[in-house]
Design a protein around this nucleic acid. Structure first.
Length: 155
DNA sequence: GCCAACGTTGGC
DNA sequence: GCCAACGTTGGC
């Protein structure tokens, strides 16, 4: 059982979009970055915890949690010429990109903004802070706990 | 919309 | 196998 942080642009797919899916379960697809792909394909497993992060928006922040309910399988969009995620170099026996399914778990009463994460000494080692531009990244159990405490804190 | 960080691609 | 060009990501 491990923990992850998944980034999504809320204009594309927000935590409320996930909550609105049937069974509150959605496919996490469209990952087209190799580092993120490798985590997704090799390490993300059923039962893992996910911090849902909104990126490329006014206030980038962790906004809630989700749970992985299906491990890596080839992202169907890469085979679909009509999809924006189509990849001509991928083939059925040699898929290049992967996706997982996650189920909505919670939306924080109070989102935890990136600016606050950067200021918190307990979170200084997060990849989110140390290396930007990584849309799937591991999170330690300590970091998970700290983020949940902040997100659920009564102000 | 600029541009920095990172990984892959491909010419030689 | 070097390395410049390119694609993706995402904060600002």
């Amino acid at each position: 059982m491990t923990y992850w942080l998944f980034k999504s642009e809320p204009d594309e797919y927000s935590i409320r979009d996930l909550a609105a899916e049937s069974g509150r379960t959605g496919r996490w697809d469209g990952i087209r970055n190799y580092q993120a792909r490798n985590f997704l394909r090799d390490s993300v497993g059923v039962g893992d915890g996910v911090l849902f992060y909104h990126s490329a928006c006014k206030v980038p922040a962790v906004v809630g949690t989700a749970e992985v309910v299906r491990g890596a399988y080839p992202d169907p969009a890469q085979f679909d010429p009509k999809s924006g995620y189509f990849d001509p170099k991928a083939s059925g026996d040699k898929p290049r990109w992967y996706c997982v399914d996650i189920r909505w778990q919670s939306e924080f009463p109070r989102p935890v903004p990136l600016a606050e994460i950067k200021q918190n000494p307990d979170l200084a080692e997060m990849l989110l802070v140390k290396q930007g531009r990584l849309s799937i990244q591991p999170v330690t159990a300590q970091e998970w706990k700290t983020i949940l405490r902040l997100g659920n804190a009564i102000m």
